[in-house]
């Protein structure tokens, strides 16, 4: 058993490193591999960059590509692990991190910030992600509040409340987009997952929330396993099911909210990656959550790579690429699952 898990981790970690390498290599300006190697070595070892190298290579790799890669890595990891958590809590393979209306809430927050004519430079470049984050968090909080039934948090009520609030948020978003002709383009690219922020500032802003959320998720593996037996059974097994669910969902929602706020709404990673992990390595949430974390990061980095190269020099929104590849895969999973009815 141990060696199997060990192999799984090494494989996932290896794929992730490969994806990171590819992501840093590919871009609008071709950076020859030897140059890249020298730059990275100089960066890691703290030595000065050789003066013979044109200065723009340094700027491109360290100020543009590396932060973008890290941002995509964090986002993919967030979506992967929270997707696994959501599927575990709801005991439903169709669950994804956007079930409780996070995407719609983030979209509404983002479009609201784009639509209001605020003085230029107000809030700076982080105004949009902050607004999206607040929108997402408020939406989930509202869904929690609405889904409380006699002190309990029934799954069905949660889902229904999520769908209802999500639809309301989407409707408001569409209305706002219609009203503000100028901001339509940016809002649309955000909603398609095509508006990742550039530079190190967004990465640093995102990191604290990401760390807190991921820590919560990585520690929830055992609780998720117990929850698979059903809430009553879990209660009998000594787990405070209601509290566990609330905490896990809170951690997952936080992680997803911060991911969506900085990179736009990217679908299918949270849905498909946990499935693949489950197919390959079984359903033990103590391993599934961290493996989905690694897998999600790899998947999103590869999708981002495709988004940048498929129609070069144009850059597709990543959300489109994940949907293009995720949807057929998802359909295939559905077909496989049909004979073995849950």
């Amino acid at each position: 058993m141990k060696t199997r898990w060990g192999r799984a981790f090494w494989l996932s970690a290896g794929l992730l490193v490969l994806a990171i390498g590819l992501s840093v290599t590919v871009g609008a300006v071709p950076v020859p591999l030897p140059v890249l190697a020298r730059l990275l070595w100089a960066g890691l070892s703290g030595r000065a960059v050789p003066a013979s190298l044109p200065a723009y290579y340094h700027t491109i790799v360290f100020d543009l590509r590396l932060p973008h890669t890290v941002l995509m890595l964090l986002t993919g990891a967030a979506l992967g692990s929270s997707g696994a958590a959501y599927q575990g809590v709801f005991r439903n393979p169709l669950a994804d991190p956007y079930l409780l209306g996070i995407a719609s809430g983030a979209g509404l927050g983002a479009v609201l910030m784009l639509a209001i004519h605020r003085p230029a430079g107000w809030g700076g470049v982080l105004a949009l992600p902050v607004a999206a984050f607040v929108g997402a968090v408020l939406t989930v909080a509202l869904v929690y509040a609405l889904a409380q039934v006699e002190g309990r948090l029934p799954t069905t009520t949660l889902i229904l409340a999520g769908v209802a609030i999500g639809s309301l948020a989407s409707a408001l978003t569409s209305f706002l987009m219609l009203e503000s002709e100028g901001t339509l383009q940016r809002a649309i690219t955000y909603l398609m997952g095509g508006a990742p922020l550039s530079g190190w500032q967004p990465v640093l802003a995102m990191l604290p929330y990401w760390l807190v959320g991921q820590a919560g998720l990585l520690l929830s593996g055992h609780a998720l396993n117990v929850l698979q037996f059903g809430e009553e059974q879990a209660q009998h097994l000594g787990l405070n099911a209601r509290r566990a669910k609330a905490l896990i969902l809170a951690a997952a929602s936080l992680t997803t909210a911060v991911a969506v706020a900085f990179a736009g709404i990217i679908g299918f990673i949270g849905l498909v990656v946990p499935h693949v992990v489950r197919l390959l390595w079984g359903e033990d949430y103590r391993r599934e959550v961290p493996l989905s974390l690694l897998g999600g990061a790899t998947a999103l980095l590869l999708a981002d790579l495709l988004a940048r190269t498929l129609l070069a020099p144009r850059v597709l929104p990543v959300g489109i690429v994940t949907a293009l590849f995720g949807a057929p895969f998802f359909l295939w999973v559905l077909r496989r699952a049909r004979p073995t009815a849950t």
Binding site: G27, A28, V29, Y56, T59, I60, D63, L64, R65, P67, P119, A120, G121, G124, V125, S198, G199, W200, Q201
Partner: peptide, 30 residues
């Protein structure tokens, strides 16, 4: 990336009427 590589001598902000300032440009990554 291409812009950094070409390294222009001057940047003209035709989006200045929408509130973009030279200070905001300097704050952008890269």
């Amino acid at each position: 990336e291409e812009l950094v590589k070409s390294n222009p001598d001057m940047i003209l902000l035709a989006d200045a009427p929408y509130g973009v300032t030279p200070e905001a440009v300097a704050a952008r990554a890269g």
